[in-house]
Design a protein around this nucleic acid. Structure first.
Length: 454
RNA sequence: GUGGUUGUAGCUCAGUUGGUUAGAGCACUGGAUUGUGGUUCCAGGGGUCGUGGGUUCAAAUCCCAUCUACCACCCCA
């Protein structure tokens, strides 16, 4: 019995139309990356679990896809463990590889491993799929592409500025109206310090990250549930409701965070950043957003997130600065900053706003109808000529009925069809049909190429 | 990982209180039209009713489990 084929949960096939659109996104992003001097690298789909585990928090470890060891792996597991039925413990015995969860951690591993060959500051980009064992939803998959750009080995804020410019360029080219939200981990740390809960930064940031979504009251409730004292929560309130322009907000923060050295440093960093933006006139809106927390625990400085203005969707790009990502792999004090474009979400935004350019760019431009053996030979010669001029062309591979061949051209949206039968061959010409208008004309091969090159 | 909704032809969906051979539109194949597609007309192929159990004389229909997609949490691109 034949079984119905299917693909694993949360994965997708990409058909030609989707590929053309995805390539449009990837190519646009790549072009901009290269414009700023970034170079591509690729890393393997799988990494050793030891490099992946513990980098994304407890949740992250659960969401890692693990790969079973080869061979008779189960016989090597001690009976005691099998009887205990503890998945976590057995996992370490039967799996030592996992699929990558993001591109940043493998990049850190790469940097440490190749530190002697890399020219620092190292500017690299990387466009590859990542895998998460998350429960799929709309716009959330178990396999999806990330487009990462990172600069590693430089503390300069100029790097943050360049990333903001890249964001501006990319979304301007894609015609997506967007706003860049910026925050700084040091400010968040400062806030926690000032309200007397320095040790609880993670709980506090995770809660205030939801401010926009669930509202102030629920945020306060969540903070209280996490065990933050009422007094600290009270102190937090005015900070969450700073008003005015970015520079006004920063000035107010300076006062609030006067007691925190880290906090003030963060304010200083944002001041420089925003003054750069002002003089450079970014092609994109940038604003300070104190509620921007981002879960990843390795960020230490700037936190960046981009939202599309005309579509209700999560962030389409995000990132930040990490001061010591490579430290865990034995290379301390190397600071980096990077962002990641979410290809799938950008895809969704572009389709919802119908901003994809006409897809025919990569498709066949002309089809030669196949009339039989002799005519085929005649067409084949012209076909090579056309291809040599860089025009995408094809010949129908069998002398099928006209209707079938025309229908093929029609369905593939091929704009031109060449008909070369007995009478055309005698004149050393061919009939060129415009599929859109239906017009036909008798042309020579050089006339044909001229028309197609227009 | 927790809770909810869902599933009938390649796609979008009908299918009565459980009752003969499960239907339609689009798509596909062939013909009307032997060198002319996108319009029209005619004919045809295509179904383990998501999967596995159960209740019943009888299940697409009722019950349970499971898988998928979607939604809300959690988290995130």
């Amino acid at each position: 019995m034949v079984q119905k084929p299917s693909i694993p949960k949360g994965t997708r096939d990409f058909s030609p139309v989707e590929m053309a659109r995805r390539n449009y996104i990837f190519n646009t992003i790549k072009e901009v990356f290269m414009l700023y001097g970034f170079q591509p690298i690729e890393t393997p789909s799988m990494e050793n679990l030891s490099t992946l585990m513990g980098k994304y928090g407890e949740e992250g470890d659960k969401l890692l896809f693990k790969i079973l060891n080869s061979g008779d792996f189960i016989s090597k597991v001690p009976d005691v463990l099998l009887e205990e039925k503890n998945s976590a413990k057995i996992t370490t015995k039967i799996s030592e590889k996992g699929l990558r969860y993001d591109l940043t951690v493998p990049f850190a591993r790469y940097v440490v491993q190749h530190r002697n060959d890399i020219i620092f500051p190292f500017k690299r980009y990387q466009i590859q799929p990542v895998w998460r064992a998350d429960r799929p939803q709309k716009g959330r998959y178990r396999e999806f592409y990330q487009c990462d750009v990172d600069i590693i080995g430089s503390n300069s804020l100029l790097n943050e500025v360049e990333l903001a410019q890249i964001i501006g360029d990319v979304f301007q080219r894609l015609k997506i109206k967007s706003v860049v939200k910026i925050n700084n981990r040091k400010i968040l740390a400062g806030i926690a310090e000032v309200i007397g809960e320095a040790g609880r930064i993670t709980d506090i940031t995770v809660a205030i990250d939801k401010l926009e979504k669930i509202g102030q009251d629920k945020v306060n409730l969540e903070l209280a549930e996490k065990g933050i004292p009422a007094e600290a929560i009270k102190k937090l309130q005015p900070i969450l409701h700073l008003a005015g322009t970015t520079s006004e907000k920063l000035r107010q923060l300076e006062g609030i965070l006067a007691g925190s050295e880290t906090g003030l440093k963060g304010v200083g960093e944002l001041n420089t950043l925003f003054s750069y933006f002002e003089t450079l006139q970014l092609p994109v809106e940038a604003e300070l957003d104190l509620t921007l927390a981002r879960g990843l625990n390795y960020y230490t400085g700037a936190i960046i997130e981009v939202k599309a203005k005309d579509v209700e969707i999560g962030s389409i790009c995000g990132g930040g600065r990490y001061d010591d990502l490579t430290g865990i792999f034995g290379l301390p004090d190397v600071s980096g900053v990077g962002i990641s474009f979410g290809a799938e979400r950008i895809y969704d935004v572009l389709s919802q706003l119908e901003l994809f350019p006409s897809e025919s760019l990569e498709a066949t431009k002309i089809l030669f109808v196949n009339f039989g053996k002799d005519e085929e030979l005649y067409s084949l010669g012209i076909l090579s000529e056309v291809r040599q001029k860089g025009i995408n062309a094809e010949i129908y591979p069998e002398p099928a009925k006209m209707k079938k061949q025309m229908n093929y051209a029609n369905r593939k949206q091929i704009p031109y069809v060449v008909l070369a039968g007995e009478s055309e061959i005698q004149q050393q010409k061919m009939t060129l049909k415009n599929m859109e208008t239906g017009n036909q004309q008798l042309v020579t091969s050089s006339e044909l190429i001229k028309i197609l090159s227009e």
